[in-house]
């Protein structure tokens, strides 16, 4: 890829990642003040994974998320203001205040939903790939999950199903090295997650999850494979969450369960996926400082407007409590 295509891609990746970052960081203060009450699992630090994978997808492709899915939602094209409103649990949210942070959803953008049951949506993503294969419509389906999900049997059942049926499914494991409070090696005999897919004959590889371009390239190749009917792909994106498992900081929020050393966190902050892409943009001459500063400002303003609107919006009306259980009451 060269010239304007590459410039467009890099700028898109940068814009997507920065939108995710600024939204996530905008939640820190309202979470600490108690204004945002629902459990919020911030994506800060992992932005390159969602951005890189979703940049390789078409609008009609599917993604399914987990408890930490704000990034997946935004990267797939979900409306930012509606997501912020949902996290404030307001009536204007993408789930009308019924779901909160852990259930962001935008079906029209292909973001099919998220769930905080570990590995809970992996088989659902396989099902969407099955639907695409039944219709033969060329869509692919992406399952985002964390390294903690590799403890769940349904992951292996899903890998087998997808492999046997040669489904257009992409399994994206965001390995941030911790399953809530447990280091990965307390949960698994190996840090190398991608190898779990190999016995199923699934093409599998590990990619630097803090390198948006590398993630994009791996995802593009996976998408091509899927669209060509060559079956599922497993991508392990090695990355790191900067914030707590839930909320800005597990330790200052009273749980005292973040056992990660400040040095380790600092080491990963130096691998900031956004800083790296910014440097690449400048080095390539794809964008200048002034252009990026202006983009930064526009995104910050968009986030601020979304937060203000969410704060001003109403909570769902009590009389609507029983709505949305069935299509008709």
């Amino acid at each position: 890829m060269e010239g304007t295509d590459r410039t467009t891609l890099l700028l898109n990746l940068y814009r997507t990642m920065l939108r995710i970052r600024l939204v996530e960081e905008r939640f820190v203060e309202p979470i600490l003040s108690g204004e945002v009450k629902c459990p919020v699992h911030l994506y800060t630090g992992q932005e390159a994974v969602a951005a890189g994978v979703c940049a390789a997808l078409e609008d009609g492709d599917y993604v399914f998320g987990s408890h930490r899915s704000h990034g997946h939602y935004l990267a797939k094209g979900g409306d930012l203001a509606k997501m912020v409103a949902e996290i404030y649990c307001k009536a204007t949210g993408c789930a009308r205040g019924r779901g909160g942070s852990m259930h962001v959803i935008a079906p029209s953008a292909g973001m099919m939903g998220a769930a905080p049951i570990v590995a809970g949506t992996i088989s659902l993503a396989v099902g969407a790939a099955y639907a695409a294969s039944v219709r033969g419509d060329g869509r692919v389906s992406v399952s985002f999950f964390g390294d903690g999900a590799t403890g769940e049997g349904v992951l292996y059942e899903s890998l087998n199903l997808a492999a046997v049926l040669k489904l257009p499914a992409i399994f994206v494991c965001e390995n941030n090295l911790y399953s809530t409070h447990l280091p990965i090696l307390e949960c698994r005999p190996s840090e190398e997650v991608y190898k779990i897919a190999e016995p199923f004959g699934i093409a599998a590889r590990r990619v630097d999850g803090n390198d948006a371009l590398a993630v994009y390239e791996a995802a593009s190749s996976a998408v091509s494979r899927c669209r060509a009917g060559q079956g599922p792909v497993f991508l392990e994106a090695l990355t790191y969450r900067w914030r707590g498992h839930v909320g800005p900081d597990d330790n200052i929020q009273g749980a005292h369960t973040d056992i990660r050393s400040p040095e380790e966190i600092e080491r990963w902050r130096k691998r900031d996926p956004i800083g790296r892409l910014r440097a690449l943009l400048l080095r390539d001459g794809a964008a200048g400082e002034a252009e990026l500063a202006s983009l930064d400002e526009r995104i910050a303003a968009e986030v601020e407007a979304a937060a203000s609107a969410a704060r001003a919006a109403d909570f769902p009306a009590t009389k609507e409590l029983a709505d949305h259980v069935f299509s008709r009451p």
Binding site: C89, G97, R98, G100, P316, T318, L321
Partner: peptide, 16 residues
């Protein structure tokens, strides 16, 4: 509890 999934929003929780 009413025959409904638990809602997120505090306004609905209070009624639930």
């Amino acid at each position: 509890l009413p025959d409904l999934p638990a809602p997120a929003s505090r306004s609905l929780e209070a009624a639930y």
